[in-house]
Structure formats: structure tokens, C-alpha cells
Amino acid sequence: MLRFIIRRVIVIVPMLFIIVSLTWVLVRLAPGNFYSGEKKLAPAVEKNLREKYGLDKPWYVQYGKVLKNIGRFDFGNSLKYEGQSVNQILLRGLPVSATLGITAYLIALLVGIIMGTLAALKPNSWLDYASMTLAMLGISIPNFVLGPLLVLLFSLTLFWFPPALWNGFPSKSLVLPALTLSAIYIAYIARLTRSGMLEVMGSDYIRTARAKGLSERQVVTRHALRGGLLPVVSFSGPALAFLITGTVVVERVFALPGLGNYFINACFNRDEPLIIGIVAFIAISVLVFNLLVDISYAFIDPRIRY
């Protein structure tokens, strides 16, 4: 087990190197740079800027600096935002994305499991069809469509929740973005729960439990859910990683100050240190989350050994 973990941690280093190098090359290939815009700068002004940010140095010096920065987990200063370091920006954006992601995660688990269980208990009933239709809708409506639709209904027609902006946790402003973000996960979890539960409900130990004379509620909550939720558990680990790092579109739609919003703007601004910083950070989080999921399997499923 320990050897497995050590091996996986060591693999992170070359992975990170490849990801960062690729990102750097792609940023360099993109036309324009952080100061280019509609209006041309005076040549002297442009030269001053290039010197100020070291863009006049040869490419290997600049690339070397990027790698050195990664090695020290200090991603340097943003090019676009004067006087702000990438680390500061990451630390500011992360809590927002994490709050949003975890809230959406909890909503997805709660609603998804309830919907899936109800559907599995009465297969082919109207309840089943209704839940699965909703789940299908959740999977097929992209969140940049769902977000504005929810805004139209809950903010502009009913005036229940604000249509955008961030007021921390807990607040009304969190509701619509978290719902939007969780929709697709609610759908997945509901479907996983339903199929898992259907399988378990037909198995021998459930029949035994019923034979013991347990009430249907006890059968479901004590015995069926445990086995039926295994697929959900293995899905929920990566889902958490994706929810925290995959908030880009939702943050954009609702103007939230999270990592995703920073990332989109960094790309549009060609803010190289910020792009590389966020990519490296997300890469590390996904790698670490995957590792955690793999480790947790060993505890959930006794058949898995490392």
C-alpha cells in the first residue's frame, strides 16, 4: 500500500512537467500577448513593457524560469494584474470554487440518491419515468443554457434569488450556481443509484432480509442502500475533483470570483504565469484526488489490494 502511494506520488512529477511544458508551448503559440489590443502601443512603450516582464530574454531563459517557479510552488507575478502574485490569486479563487463545488456535490449526492432510490423501488412506475426523464434532461442540457434559464425563472420572474455576484457561504447567491453546477451530477448519480439498487434488490441477501420479517423501509435503508451505492461511491470521488475544478462555465455565467473565471480571463489576456499557475494547480488537484479515490477503494471494497 505504502509503496503504491509512493509510486503514484513520484509519477506526479513527470506528469506535471509534461502538462506545464505543453501549456507553456500552447500559450506561446497563441497570437498576441498580454498588452496587445485594439490600439497599438507606441514602440518605446512596448519595449519598456517587454523589458519590465522579461519578454526580451531568449525563450530558454523564460522557459527555465517557468520550471524553476513550479519547482518552488511560486508561480511568479501576474502579467495583467499589476503587483499581484499568481499564488495570491489562486488562494483567493480557490475558496470560492471549493465552496461552490462542494455545495453542488452535496446537493448532487442528496437529490441524486433520493431520486434514484425512489425510481428503483417502483420500477416502470410514473415515479420512475419522471425521475429518469429529469435525469436525462440534466445530462443533456449544458450548464451554460441551464444557468440563464434558472436565472430567467428564479431571478427575473419570481425574484427569489439574485441572478449573479458572490456573497460567500451561506447566501442566497449560492443557490442558482450550485443548482446549475449539480444538475448533470444529480442525473448521473440518480441513474447509477437506480441501476445499482435494482441489481441489489433482486439479490439473495435482500430476500433473506425480507424473510427475517424486516419492514420494507429497513430493508432499503439498512441493506439495499449499502450495496446499491457502491457504484455511486466510486463515481463520487472523481466527481468531487471535477466539481471543484470544473466550475469555469458556471462562474462565468454568474460572475463569481472563482478559479474558473480567473482562468478564462487569463487565457483571453494571455496572462502566461496565471494560466500556467492555474493549470498546474488543477493538474495537481486532479492527480491527488485520483490517488485518494484509488486508496479509498481499498477500504470500501475488500477485494481490491495494492
Partner: peptide
Amino acid sequence: LLAENTTMMSLYKAGE
């Protein structure tokens, strides 16, 4: 600090 026109319009309409 936001840049999306539709988001601004929504905020304005909602009285924010």
C-alpha cells in the same frame, strides 16, 4: 467587476 452583458442586464432587471 464583471464583463458579461447578459449578466449585467439580469442584475439590473433584478434591482441589484
